[in-house]
Structures are given as C-alpha cells and as structure tokens.
Design a protein around this nucleic acid. Structure first.
Lengths: 339, 339
DNA sequence: ATGATTTACGATAACGTTTGCGGCAAATTT
DNA sequence: AAATTTGCCGCAAACGTTATCGTAAATCAT
C-alpha cells in the first residue's frame, strides 16, 4: 500500500517548489522547458494522479457536472445520459448522477447536494412543470448554470434542450387522420408534466385543424404512465359507447398496455384500431405489429445539453435553447391499407 | 448573486468558533445543546449547504463512489446503474458515472481519474477478462476497494457480483433440447469476455450432458454483439449445409437480428427454428413471438454491489462475493407444441 | 553601459473543512 | 476541601492544490 503521490513529493525529489511543479503539470507559462520535462517525467514515473478534489477546492470550481434524472433505467433517459457522459468524458469532465424518482422535494435536495460538491453546472430533467426552487437554488443564488432537459416549467427563460412535443403529437394525430381513422383517443400523462401537456395540446390542435370534434370522453389521464394504465384505459375506452378507432398514447410504454388489451379484446391493430406511441423505444420496433411512434434523439439531446452547459461556463450572458424537431416513424400499427 | 454560505459565516454571526459550528452540524459530542440548536437553526435559515469537497479533502475520503460501465445506455447496465444509484442515494453517497466504451485502456484511465477525485470505492464492470491494471491501481496501490460486477478476470479473488452465466446457458440449451430441437446453434460473444465464455461453456456442457454432438460449424462468434451480427450469422447458419433448428444467442439484442433474418427467410419461430436469448431485455417480452430468455436481476445486482462496497469500506478483510442464479423465462420463441 | 522588460522561479496565503490538543469552568467524586 | 472528572469550547494545523506577488537573473532596447 503505497502512499499517495503528491506535488509536494515531486517537488521534494526535484528540489524545486510546489508552485513550479503545479505550473509544469498544468502546462502554464512561467516555467522553464527543462524543468517542465523533468517534472513530467517524474510524474509519469511515480504514476502521479492529481488530486482534483484539492484543486477544485482551491479553484472554487470543479470539472464535475451534476445530472438529475427522474429515472435512470428508463430507456429515453438512459440515452440522454449516454449523450451527456460520453461528451463530458471527452473534456475530462466527470458526471455525478442522481435520481429524483419524480419527487420534486428530492429533486431540490439533490440540487443542494450537488452545489455542495462544487459542481460547475447541472443538467436537470425536472419532474414537474412548476416554477421550481431547484432552479433558483442553483442559478440565482449560487451562480451555477443549469440546463433543463426534456421538460420544463412554463415561461421558463433559461437554458434548455427539448423536443417539440406539441408538433410531435400533432403529426402523430394528423397521420392517423390521414389513414382514415375517425375517432382518435388520447391516453395522456399528468397535467403537471410539461411534455404530457404539450402532447395533449398538439393532439387537440391536430383535431381542430382537421375539423374533427374534440371529445373529452376520449381523453384519459394516467397517474403513473405505465403499461398497466395503458391496459386499463384501453379497456375502458373500447368497452364504452364512444368507442375510438385509434389511440395516440403519451409513451410507447403505455402503448404496450394498449397492445395487451387489444389482444384480449380480439381486436386487430391496425385494422380495428390504429395506434401511435411516443419515444421510439427499443421495444417499438420489435413488437408485433411494429409500433408507429415519434422519435426523440436522446443521445443528441444529451450531447447538446452538455455543450450548452460547457459554453455557459465561459459565457454567462447568452441563453442557449434548442428544440429538436420530432420525427414520425410510420410503422405497422397505424397503416390501414396494409391489410 | 448571494455569496456562498460557509461555516465561517455562521460562526461569525453566532460569535462562536468554526470548530463548534462543525461539531454542531455533524452532531458530534463536545457541543452544548443550546448552541447546537442555534447553529442548526441558523444553518437552515441561511440555507447552508456543506462544502463536501473541502470536507473530503480534509478527511481524505469522500462520500462519492465511482462506477465504470462499458455502455451506459444498454438496458442491462442501465438497470445495474439504477440499483447502484438508488441505494447509494439512501446513504447520501454520490455516484460518479463513467463509460469505458469497452476500451481497456480507457477503463484504466478512468480508474485513475476516480482515484484523483478521492472516491471511496469503485464499482467496475470490466470490458475484458484479463488480469487488469485498473484493478491493481485501485485496490493494491491506493487501497480503494473495488467491486467487480457482471464480468471478471479468471481467478479473480476480490469482491464481485455476477450471475451464473454458465448455468444460465446450460438451462437455456437444456430447455431447447427438451423441446425436441436437435441441432442447436450458438451465436456467442468475444473470447475475451468472461460472460460470453461462460455462456459458451454452459452451451457445450448442456450438449455433452444430453449426448449431443458438438459441431463447431454451429458456433459463431460476434465482434460487436449487436443486431446486425445476429442477422448476418443467422443467414449464414440457415443457408449452410449444417442448418440448425434452434439458436441460442449470447444476448437478446443479437436475437433481434435472428428474428429479422428469420422473417426474411420465411421461417417460423418456434416451429422451424427455436430461439432463446439472454438478459430479459424489455424488448424480449413484447416482440412477436415473445422471446424466451434468461433473466438477470440487474437492479438487485447493482444494489448488492453497492452494499458490498459500503461494507468493504469498514471491514477491509472479508471478501464479498455473490453469484445470482440465472432464471429461464420460457416464452413463445422456444415452445414447439404451441403451434 | 544603463535602464526596461522578460523569464523562471519561490514564498506565502488562501479554499472550507475536520481534528488533535489544550483550556477552563462547573459538576462530581474522594 | 481538595482532587478528579465532565462538558463545552477555541486555537491552530492540517488536507493538496492554485493565485498573487515578489525577485533574481537574463535579455532586450537605447
């Protein structure tokens, strides 16, 4: 069990000051070429690894960014994470990952802890669309830049990266209409989720554009946004008087429940009922029939969020915002003529 | 832009020493009840968040653990990560996540950086099964405990959490045999991956146990272990003279390629060819026909790895090892009588 | 040659904590 | 009543860096 190498030790062995060692290793000016070489060589030989903790204490900022996601194992968030981690790694930035589990209070706590760790910035996928304390804590009080991803409060003014959920829903529903479906239901997410709200609005907008009547009985609101609810609401919808002939769901996962219910009811997708999901999860392309869905470029969103954060560290004025356009992937579940 | 709250500031306002503030906040002894209350109250009021960077510099250890995974967006790893993050959060431990991208040298670099960040331990899913430098760097030289997860070098002696890949493969193949399949192919992973090797050995073992001939032409080795290779090798297998009537794949993802190839060849699963995958990915239960596969409890593995690491921090002697038993999930893709 | 600038380095003080040591009352024991 | 323990607290030194400032020597311009 070796003792840990420090600059002090290198300085001692070379008979120079710690200051010089520091300068040499960080390739700053104010250090002679020979001494720099000597320091570098010895550092390599002794397998010196800089103590970034100490450095960031002194510099009052770290090369660590914090990431807070509602759920880490969820595929879409996992791809966002991938984008963040892989691009952060190129810059030698570390990523501290935490999970809010969709609990606003936890989210706020986590922001506090991240600040305590001197992270130089935070990427946050908020659980709700409220004006939130987390944001204030980070940005205004501690001057740590924050980039919101995927969801965000209304009238939010800061950095963000999202997809155009309104438009995504709109083209999904428009597509169903073009396929000849007449009564299109929507299984949506909570009211306090900005993405669910946007998708719902997009759904309404598409109906209006095509002179189709809006029927509140055809809109169901999930609590947990999972398969079980998709299953439950599909049964409810299809066993009611107002039987829809198409269902647009807020997520692919919910659509999985729709499929299951359809199977039990002996209904054919897409002949009897058309289905369009949201997110282009792995599953959607392999399920039978393949599920039409809206593609969200998770990895690129993660990368972009990281880049925004990085540049916000230097230039604090400019506000960076990016809306990725949603893309409709037409597959079997919504194409009537196919059969 | 407020200035950051520090113990010094709290001390100044209460006219006491920083020492006392520290002791009060960390609820140590040697501090009076009234002063403790006062400190706590003021800290809350000022929204003080401790600077953990400074603390961990002084204490020479942090409440941060490092996690290195080959790929973060891969479902199985994402579930492991979930297990780690959610249990770490309960202890107020932070998780630094990095990705080795299956590159051993990167893996080794990352271990170095994590050590530089004073992490108190590392959970590592190694890319290869070589005796690796990363491990030595962490454990022996710096005395930072490390827990390997999922894969590991041969003859590895330290802490680990894995599943019984040998047995998993064995029961998968045994199941195919019991279903009456006679020529069972195996699409496997790299030789230098311990899990691929174990599964391959399990495959061989099951054949031997059932007096079935081992035919090297029926074993294909992937380079990247993805859909494309599954597709490619399936075509190769089924267009050859030695046409198998069942395929056991090293992962569900590879099995996706198998499905695609089957579709193009007009072959029915499971009638013409039986398929069993590995990992119980989300997809497997929704694809048509549903894919029989081996379940790996990713979340529990992550949780266990974290617990091992935590307890290794206190008790450095004991070596902790856990092998989760693999579980066969029989679904449609391997059940012949169904049709 | 003389002054002005540049180069290369060191001494010192931070950054915000924790901790060993010691002080000094009050409380308790002998 | 003296001796000891206990409770509460502060001083000062760390932890391993980096930033600021100063300074001797070397180089430059005049």
């Amino acid at each position: 069990m070796h003792n840990k190498m420090t600059m002090k030790e290198i300085a001692r062995r070379l008979n120079i000051s710690i200051t010089t060692v520091s300068r040499a290793l960080n390739s700053k000016s104010d250090v002679g070429e020979k001494t720099r070489q000597a320091v570098m060589a010895l550092a390599r030989e002794l397998d010196y690894t800089p103590n970034e903790i100490a450095a960031s204490l002194r510099k009052r900022k770290s090369s660590i960014i914090g990431v807070i996601l509602p759920r880490v194992e969820h595929y879409f968030f996992a791809t966002i994470l991938k984008g963040i981690v892989s691009s952060a790694q190129k810059d030698n930035f570390a990523v501290i990952l935490s999970e809010s589990a969709h609990i606003p209070q936890k989210e706020s706590e986590l922001v506090g802890r991240l600040i305590g760790m001197n992270v130089s910035g935070i990427i946050l996928a908020p659980c709700r669309n409220e004006i939130d304390i987390s944001y204030n804590k980070s940005m205004e009080k501690n001057n740590i830049p924050i980039v919101l991803i995927d969801r965000m409060p209304k009238n939010y003014q800061g950095h963000f990266v999202k997809t155009n959920d309104f438009h995504g829903a709109e083209i999904a529903v428009k597509h169903l209409i073009q396929q000849g479906y007449k009564k299109i239901a929507h299984i949506r997410g909570h009211e306090y989720s900005s993405i669910a709200e946007d998708r719902y609005q997009g759904y309404c907008h598409a109906l209006k554009l095509n002179n189709m009547e809006y029927n509140p009985a055809l809109v169901k609101t999930c609590e947990f946004v999972n398969k079980e609810e998709g299953y439950y609401f599909t049964k409810e919808l299809l066993l009611s008087d107002d039987k829809p002939d198409a269902i647009f769901t807020v997520s692919d996962e919910v659509a999985m429940g729709v499929y299951k219910a359809m199977g039990e009811l002996g209904l054919n997708i897409p002949v009897d009922v058309g289905v369009v999901g949201y997110s282009n999860s792995m599953v959607s392309n392999f399920i039978y029939p393949t599920l039409s869905t809206i593609d969200q470029p998770g990895i690129r969103m993660g990368e972009t969020a990281y880049e925004f954060l990085r540049s916000a560290l230097d230039d604090t004025e400019k506000i960076r915002q990016k809306v990725f356009e949603a893309k409709l992937l037409i597959r079997q579940s919504s194409v009537r003529r196919q059969l």
